[in-house]
Design a protein around this nucleic acid. Structure first.
Lengths: 333, 333
DNA sequence: TTGTAGGCGTTATCAA
DNA sequence: TTGATAACGCCTACAA
């Protein structure tokens, strides 16, 4: 079996207390004993049991992360950064992919509480999860409203919608359509739609938004895009609410011989930039979002949340697709 | 503070033992007490402390995952599936992004041991980490050789290399180049190169492999691709060792007016399929890899590893890029 | 400078 | 059917 503090104590010929002191650098220890103890720890390949420590200190340094799916590159990169930042601060990360399913989100939430996490960062949310209101733990939401007292970090979705729409207008598009998730979900991401609709209206046109039933199922996207092309053959500009959707629009456009269609996405992940550099998109400050979320979480732990804002909005940026040489590009024909 | 088992016992007017029995359905309990206890648990919004449980049972149901970075869609999707499978079996996942850095991998390894994980799945490996040999824990490696006794799950890299190369030959390519990571890393992924070189030689040609210094840095890829185009202007086929690299090749090819260059990638993630459906690639069975890895881990825990193979190789599949309509595609001009 | 004892929250054994 | 007790591994008062 794994050695414990007593085994070390026995081998070093001291008491467990002394071993503990050596490990934690507390109080006075003679050089001699320190060496003996360290020696014994090496010899037995000893690792202190964090569980026992956590139990005593009532503090685990675990952070729970609940996101729909890290398969999506936006969440993948976001979680990547969050984990990195947490690790640099001595926190460990418990990963949960909720798949946007209420039952999974619920059971993860319970699991995290049972495991005494110090805090939770949530990027997923099914309505009807009232549990969030009764959780007595630091929580930060990313791009979701969970409850009154839970702070939110989000990119400037409204501004993103404006930038995207303006760009399409500047490109000379006359019939601009927006595709997004269901309206009823009151997420900040819906403000992308508001930005689009406002901008379209400011130009004296009529906005038109298509809603996708379930964004996690890829084929739903394809179906929606085809429907749009069928119902609105005049469309010459599309603002898609995320890059994968935009990618789908682009490949469907190729299939349907619509080389003049302009597309703008949302997210601006590295992965998509590499795979689809010609895509114009609204780039979220993924690293800053991660950093802000972790900071807010730590601030809550330390009760430093006195006069802080409950919603932090970070600026976005329109990144133009790289126009590529040759006759091979949807953007430049 | 959070209520504990004693609080429940007090409120229900029973002993902690009884509460424990109710929670775990052990021994005989009268319906009356069961109800009282359940009532008390609801009232205090009680969650049993898994830490204490784990301490007692010497079993945490934590699984540690060490991967270079879940930003990469291959690892992202792999970790996604692993987490899913683990969750369905009641395991929780501690996520570690090692960034291919020795120091990070080392400290994660220590962290996981301190936190008493029940097992580790490793998809990262820097040489010179001897620790793997001394860890007394179930470990499974994905596409890496860590030590003699650590089982490996991998896709059929050799076959993948053959399929990719053959396809390029079938497309009529005369000058086929392979791009891969450093040779000295003795990973199964290097067998992709073996498959390529063998196939090229079988066709009486001379293989040519370019090595990339660090694959995590995107710009390194661009540099290597440009170097290839400069040094080997005659190249008309490239087998890239992963899809992001292949994507880079494609966009650089567009920039350099090489519409006839054929490219094959490796991985076949959903994300890349969506963003770059025209890319031909060797598709790894990501879900099966995840499933096999978890199974092997559990088998080790239960000492069922008697006559099992130490290396499990799963079949790959060549997925042809979807030729798209219009003059917009590198594959069909 | 070092050791003893009690407790962190839970469970299993044994006794009642 | 229920309860007291010791144990899981560690840490911190308090004592020596």
């Amino acid at each position: 079996m794994k050695p414990n503090i007593k085994d070390i104590a026995r081998l070093a010929g001291v008491s467990p207390t002394t071993v503990s002191r050596v490990m934690n650098n507390r109080g006075y220890i003679s050089e001699k004993t320190r060496k003996k103890v360290n020696q014994a720890m090496k010899e037995l390949n000893y690792f202190p049991n964090e569980l026992a420590r956590s139990l005593y200190h009532q503090r685990t340094r675990f952070i729970g992360l609940i996101f729909p799916t890290i398969s999506n590159p936006f969440f993948g990169e976001l979680v990547f950064h969050i984990e990195n930042i947490c690790a640099s601060m001595g926190y460990k990360v418990l990963l949960c992919n909720s798949l946007d399913r209420v039952d999974k989100e619920r059971s993860y939430l319970e699991m995290l509480q049972r495991n005494q996490v110090d805090g939770i960062i949530v990027g997923a949310h099914n309505r009807h999860i009232s549990e969030y209101q009764s959780i007595d733990l630091p929580i930060v939401a990313i791009d979701r409203y969970l409850s009154e007292r839970i702070p939110v970090v989000a990119s400037d979705n409204f501004q993103g919608g404006i930038l995207a729409t303006r760009w399409l207008i500047d490109q000379g598009c006359r019939h601009i359509i927006h595709i997004n998730g269901p309206r009823k979900l009151e997420t900040p991401a819906n403000r992308r739609r508001d930005g689009y609709e406002r901008t379209i209206e400011e130009h004296g046109r009529i906005p038109l938004t298509y809603e996708i039933p379930k964004s996690l199922i890829y084929h739903e996207n394809v179906k929606t895009v085809r429907k749009i092309f069928a119902e609105r053959p005049e469309v010459d500009g599309i603002f898609a609410s995320d890059d994968l959707l935009a990618a789908t629009v682009i490949s469907e456009a190729k299939k349907c011989h619509k080389p003049d269609l302009k597309v703008v996405g949302y997210d601006g992940t590295e992965t998509v930039r590499i795979c689809l550099p010609q895509l114009t998109t609204i780039k979220q400050p993924i690293h800053e979002i991660a950093e802000t979320a972790v900071q807010l979480l730590v601030a809550q732990k330390n009760n430093e949340m006195t006069d802080r804002k409950k919603e932090i909005i970070l600026p976005v940026e329109l990144v133009e697709g790289r126009v590529q040489a040759g006759p091979n590009n949807i953007e430049d024909s």
